[in-house]
Design a protein around this nucleic acid. Sequence first.
DNA 1: TTCGTTGCAAATGTTTTGCACCTGA
DNA 2: TCAGGTGCAAAACATTTGCAACGAA
Lengths: 129, 129
Amino acid sequence: MRTLKHSRQREAIKEFLMTRTDHPTADIVYDNLRNEFPNISLGTVYRNLALLSEIGEIQKLTTGTGADRFDGNINPHYHFICKECHCVQDLKMDTMDALTEEASKHFDGKLDGHLAYFYGTCGDCIKKS
Amino acid sequence: MRTLKHSRQREAIKEFLMTRTDHPTADIVYDNLRNEFPNISLGTVYRNLALLSEIGEIQKLTTGTGADRFDGNINPHYHFICKECHCVQDLKMDTMDALTEEASKHFDGKLDGHLAYFYGTCGDCIKKS
DNA sequence: TTCGTTGCAAATGTTTTGCACCTGA
DNA sequence: TCAGGTGCAAAACATTTGCAACGAA
């Protein structure tokens, strides 16, 4: 296991993500961090986002449309993806651990858990249409 | 709605996917199609994979690691992704429509359905370790 | 004839990486 | 001191797109 040093950039990236509930992309993190670190590079942002999600301090969301998104909330929860505007929202419901158990019964291997993405149309897009 | 013409390439892509249960990437489809169509281009493969999944004749799987994968089986089913070898397998269990209904109760907008990805270690990788 | 489709190549968007310098422990 | 972290730029990847030629209806 690698020993981590403290880094102001990494800390700021994590703090920024914890202030947001809209699951920003690496690019948005980069734009915002430049207020505090005018010379920060996109490479540093990507490296730290990857590192933070490896050690489980943030969660990476791959939505299937556009860039990956990042979530500072690591409590298990499901996500919603709007098929119109592609916004990503947290769902306020418990995750179903029973689903992983049920799946394990029919599976040759070891299941650790599952991710679920709900899709449909968000409230804002319904109003606009 | 756009009118579709018949295309031998598109038909062959769909047929190829229906013979496979390992959810190949666009690149693998391309390599295999070149047996039958030596001059087929990767662009054509991507265009047809996108078109087929738009009209619901195949399913696109975004796994979060590497290229998207494609599934010729459009019956609703969940997928497993091995965190070691990144293989993708179908899970032999019913999908939980009740999960979408439950989520709808707490959601401001309209939910159409959900996708679930189970992760863990596949049987082959367990044997190797 | 018409318009969707193709092959090719160039472009795009996202993410990763090599390298020399910097920094925290 | 020295391994990890950074900025910068180039590279790597996956995917999309413009365009002229082709092909199905």
